[in-house]
Design a protein around this nucleic acid. Structure first.
Lengths: 297, 297
DNA sequence: CGATAACTCTGCATTTTTTTATAGTTATTA
DNA sequence: TAATAACTATAAAAAAATGCAGAGTTATCG
């Protein structure tokens, strides 16, 4: 009997997740099923793919030799699904949007609510992640990104520039006199990032020389940063438009030339003619030109 | 629910065979199963892949757009199976050999019989076909060919040169005096090919100018040609070694510089370390150095 | 040391898929 | 025009894959 292509998919999932359980969650199957797929595959291939350790499944040498081609197969399968999705014309169905924490958790729910009222047949999934999700692998249909997408085969539209500024809560500034120049900043409590170096790089580009230890409060969560600012912990970066939502926030050094972020929407070229995706993209593109407007109503 | 990769394989089979029934035979499934695979795939994709005509399944436009990527997937799946097969070390199992009509139908059965006596755990399949089978798609594990294999990724060994000559049955030559030079040949009944132009090209390279109509008896079957010679119909080409099997056959114009054929064995590079394949290749390589010896015992 | 968490494995009930068998359609051929 | 061949479609029986629930193992953490 031929070996099942679906078992190859399972093999790849187990190899890349490192355990039957993790793979099963990813595949939407149960762990025994995944285990049996591997058993069957091994039986048909005639050799062992994994050693069943207690800390999961470890690839054998022969297993490792197969991962590369399995992974290629994953790629061509994704191609197939994308092309198929591009040919689809149904209005009903699901669209999966990937966005970073701020946009995905704060902004998109409101926009999506309006969209769903207009188009009740379309279901929306939002994947909130600061990782760059892979449109090629169809982890999402549409990506909202704060930088120009560079992957090949992507169709990207720039929506607007999002101006950034440094903000602090009024109560913080009552305790600490507002800085008058960049040089004053090192007298202040700066809200910083934990692992992600992008903010430090941005500060340093303004003429400061910071290290992670320069920050008294560190988090990689953008939402935690926002709430830290609102709680009066210190000074941190914020979208200027978003800061208007909270009248108690005051922009610090408003003339500082902080670089803007670009707001981009992207989808894969193969799916750009899919009606649902088009509809959602157009809606988002229009509404995101004034991203925080809906909160002000 | 995700769509099944196996359904994509079925889709490809139906698209390339043109009917559920033909595809089912090729896949080793039944026709209702194949039909249901297509139904499910269409349902999940949300559009129609085939129009069910009475003369089979005709691809819709959207279906056609998917054939290319499905076919790519077939390719990567074949890669996977080949790599896996190359990692295999079992002695038991099946080996599939592709060969042309003469070698596959006349010569190989005898050789294979000897091999199987030595290695009872290995099963042998012989695919007799004058088409060039695709080792890349794993239609066969080993190919025996009469010309240098050129496909990429193939490992080929040249076994010997097989000298060719023109032969006729004694009874034919009693009725028609043997030709003394190439020029005499057009007075004779030549056994020719029907569609395949290679023989005509070879004759013309010797200085003759023939067209398909120059032959009174035409067939693309090599075995039919042999039997036509043995039946005394006329003059035709034959492996010199094979002609010795039938003492009533006489070589005509023995000094004619007929080009030799080369005898090659090939397998895919991925699979060259597979023990079974190695075993069979080595055996064939050794025994084919004197290809017709076994018939003379 | 005990509790917990993250695994894999096994047996059984259930669901899904496949096969078997049959009917029905259309084109071809004698 | 009847017989045949090559299809697809459908329904019930058989087989296979799946999920569920629980057992057993090992590492980690307080």
């Amino acid at each position: 009997m031929q070996l099942s292509w679906d078992h190859i998919r399972t093999f790849h999932a187990v190899a890349s997740h490192g355990s039957l359980l993790a793979a099963s969650r990813h595949l939407g199957l149960t762990q025994p099923t995944v285990g049996r797929h591997i058993d069957l595959l091994e039986e048909r291939l005639g050799f062992t793919l994994f050693t069943r350790g207690r800390e999961g499944m470890r690839l054998t040498d022969k297993g490792s030799d197969l991962v590369a081609t399995a992974s290629e197969m994953l790629g061509t399968a994704a191609d197939f699904e994308r092309v198929a999705s591009g040919l689809e014309e149904r209005i009903e169905g699901t669209i999966r949007i990937s966005a970073n924490e701020i946009l995905g958790a704060l902004l998109l729910p409101g926009l999506v609510a309006d969209f769903m009222a207009e188009h009740p047949m379309i279901e929306i999934e939002i994947e909130v992640s600061n990782e760059i999700t892979n449109l090629l692998q169809r982890d999402a249909d549409i990506a909202v990104r704060m930088f120009r997408p560079t992957q090949n085969d992507l169709v990207a539209r720039k929506i607007i520039d999002v101006p950034l500024g440094l903000f602090a809560h009024r109560s913080y500034l009552e305790r600490h006199p507002a800085p008058r120049s960049v040089d004053d900043l090192d007298q202040h409590v700066l809200l910083g990032q934990d692992r992600n170096p992008s903010l430090i790089n941005a500060y340093n580009a303004l003429g400061m020389s910071l290290t992670p230890n320069s920050f008294q409060f560190r988090t990689d969560s953008n939402i935690a940063t926002i709430n830290a600012i609102r709680a009066g912990i210190g000074i941190g970066p914020l979208h200027v438009g978003m800061a208007k939502l909270w009248p108690d926030l005051v922009q610090v050094l408003p003339d500082l030339p902080v670089p803007s972020l670009e707001l981009w929407l992207a989808c894969h070229a193969d799916v750009r003619h899919n009606k649902r995706i088009r509809l959602v993209m157009d809606f988002l593109a229009q509404r995101m030109r004034s991203p925080y407007e809906s909160f002000l109503r």
